[in-house]
Design a protein around this nucleic acid. Structure first.
Length: 589
RNA sequence: GGGGGCGUGGUGUAGCGGUUAACAUGCGGCCCUGUCAAGGCCGAGAUCGCCGGUUCGAAUCCGGUCGUCCCCGCCA
């Protein structure tokens, strides 16, 4: 037997026991005589002691042993001498006096020190991911993720959901993200696609009468990567029949609230029940549809106040139908011209032409790009609307509404980070609802679905589909946490006729629609229950629960930014024979 | 597709026109019987990502290239 106990479980109560332990050498402290070895396994660390006077054979057996060697020891648990306890580790009151050592496998000197992976180049960590994952941090992240998924499965199982697997090899959909394609050997020239999500399939399961489906589903999208985006990621995919949007939202809210309390009790949920905010409201208040509501500093519309102003930057924008809005950064009134310029550069990245400001020092002195152009009354009204006080910095953008909101929304979160306004142990969940069903696509001169093309309109808005599609709101809901979209869903269209009308609206040719979605329309003609669902992202949730700065830290084997697996070296070239079998000829420049 | 940051011993950094390329840690050796990032002494280990240019002289300046991270576009 390798182990009678794990390295993390020995306590005062175990003193006197003969134990066998096995694990990795975390550290070794050789005092010439007495030698200490910290032995680590998945469950913790315990201190081993050898003494040449007591057990010379065991003592010398440890001589060659170095960090990350895998060893098995027999020994006796004893209480540490008075004053030698280590309160920093769970097993710190005891140690194991070693009587026998067996080297199970020596280790080369690792390319980096396991517990210091935070300051190691990420590429090195990814190349040796199996070493990186030995660290407490990564081990804890893997465990956290396991707990999240297990909690979800147990919770949904208790509520009569069944987990159904859907195919990974399915059909390409030109809408939305780019597909990963898989060539077919038996059908020359034809391709499967890896699913961007099991959307169509879960709706088919509703037609099939499953009623309550979920799946911890892997999804694939061939788009460029970000801190919170990987080409393959995991969703809790869920769909229910005979529900309205409130039913789905309540289910997820209850699930996540209980899960967080159970798994990360140190986290505080900012507001319960979770606020339900309309798309229009969050855009006006926060400038983005996935707002971080943990702090204030909301956007303020001053278009009406400055429409007639002498400051042409403002008034000319208003003439052209644009907006002027601002944000107040309390306490930044002493910022230098240079510091403010950094904000200007920041918003220019997102299309703003400039940034107007009023900086008010603690003593009430004002520096401004435009104050001299506006009269006292306007200034007073502006200060009142923004709640401006001594010491504040007021920042303004004038442009088309879309740009103003986007830039100020991003600026607001930039200020959050600079001013350190939020606490990572606060989870501010909220729902964003009442999205417009369509958004106008300027380039293609047509309406695009804002969520996806199966989203049902609000019943009272169906009438708008014919006259003014922009007025139609969808029965859609986005789940937002601390400024990240961590899920989205909707009540679906279950009526073939309405579905065809939506296809028409987005300019999808009937023939093309039949080719791509004929199977769905056909399915819907055989008795389809009203249904809806949601697909919360597991990776982003775990990232936030683990206070990690990016999604890769909660994925065992992530891809790097250029979608490469640096450990396994994928993607890689294949043999001529493989290509031939797949009827593929390469055309590389 | 575009913009920006970073590439110096195994790892993390310093050096930014002339240095024996510095420091920490890890690694090897010796000493050390109560440490827990143990300590002390000694030692090995880097053609400064790569290619080209400027210069009497390049880790250092310039151009290109590759890698990586962050961002924009993209992600229904």
């Amino acid at each position: 037997m390798y182990k009678t106990h794990t390295c993390g479980e020995l306590r005062k109560e175990d003193v006197g026991k003969d134990v066998s332990l096995a694990g990795w050498v975390d550290r070794r402290r050789d005092h010439g005589g007495v030698t200490f070895v910290d032995l680590r396994d998945r469950f913790g660390v315990v201190q081993l002691v050898t003494n040449p006077d007591i057990s010379p054979a065991a003592h010398h057996a440890l001589d060659p042993v170095r960090m990350e060697w895998v060893i098995k020891v027999d020994g006796n648990v004893r209480r540490r001498p008075e004053g030698m306890e280590n309160p920093d580790i769970a097993t710190g009151n005891v140690e194991v006096e070693v009587t026998k050592v067996e080297i199970l496998n020596p280790a080369r000197t690792p390319p980096f020190m396991i517990q210091q992976e935070e300051e190691v180049d990420e590429q090195t960590r990814l190349k040796y991911r199996y070493l990186d994952l030995r660290s407490d941090r990564m081990r804890d992240n893997l465990i956290l993720r396991h707990k999240v998924v297990k909690y979800i499965r147990d919770y949904l199982d208790e509520r009569d959901f069944i987990e159904v697997e859907t195919p990974i090899l399915f059909k390409a959909t030109p809408e939305g993200a780019r597909d990963y394609l898989v060539p077919s050997r038996v059908h020359p020239g034809e391709f499967y696609a890896l699913p961007q999500s099991p959307q169509q399939l879960k709706q088919m399961l509703m037609v099939a009468g499953v009623e309550r489906y979920f799946q911890i589903a892997r999804c694939f999208r061939d788009e460029d990567l970000r801190v919170d985006r990987q080409p393959e990621f995991t969703q809790l995919d869920l769909e229910m029949s005979f529900v309205e949007r409130e039913d789905v939202m309540e289910l997820i809210e209850d699930l996540y609230t209980q899960m967080v309390q159970e798994i990360t009790p140190e986290k505080k949920i900012y507001q319960t029940p979770w606020p339900r905010l309309s798309y229009e409201e969050v855009m006006n208040r926060f400038g983005k549809d996935n707002p971080d509501i943990r702090f204030g500093m909301e956007l303020v519309d001053i278009t009406d106040l400055v429409a007639e102003s002498e400051f042409r930057v403002f008034s000319s924008v208003v003439e052209k139908g644009g907006d002027v809005r601002g944000i107040k950064a309390p306490g930044l009134g002493e910022y230098s011209r240079n510091q403010i310029d950094e904000f200007t550069e920041f918003v220019k990245q997102y299309g703003a032409k400039g940034l107007a400001y009023i900086a008010i020092t603690e003593t009430g002195e004002e520096r401004s790009t435009f104050l001299k152009f506006i009269d006292e009354n306007t200034k007073a009204a502006l200060y009142q609307r923004m709640g401006a006080e001594d010491g504040d910095l007021l920042l303004f953008i004038a442009d088309q509404q879309e740009i103003v909101l986007d830039c100020l929304g991003r600026l607001r979160e930039e200020l959050r980070d600079r001013m350190d306004l939020v606490d990572g142990d606060t989870l501010a969940f909220c729902w964003v609802i009442d999205f417009p069903l369509f958004t106008w696509n300027e380039e293609e001169d047509r309406w695009d679905p804002s969520h996806h093309l199966f989203t049902a309109p609000m019943p009272e808005d169906v009438k708008h589909l014919d006259e003014d599609p922009s007025q139609a709101r969808g029965q859609q809901y986005d789940l937002v946490l601390n400024g990240y979209e961590i899920g989205g869903g909707s009540i679906r269209i279950h009526d073939g006729e309405l579905q065809e009308k939506v296809f028409d609206l987005i300019g999808l040719d009937r023939e093309v629609a039949r080719e791509r979605f004929g199977h769905m329309l056909q399915a819907f003609s055989y008795g389809t229950p009203p249904h809806g669902g949601i697909a919360p992202g597991i990776d982003r949730l775990c990232m936030l629960l683990a206070n990690e700065p990016n999604i890769r830290e909660v994925i065992a084997f992530p891809k790097n930014q250029s979608a490469r697996d640096v450990m396994g070296d994928a993607p890689s070239s294949v043999t001529e024979e493989q290509l031939e079998e797949l009827h593929i000829k390469l055309d590389l420049d």
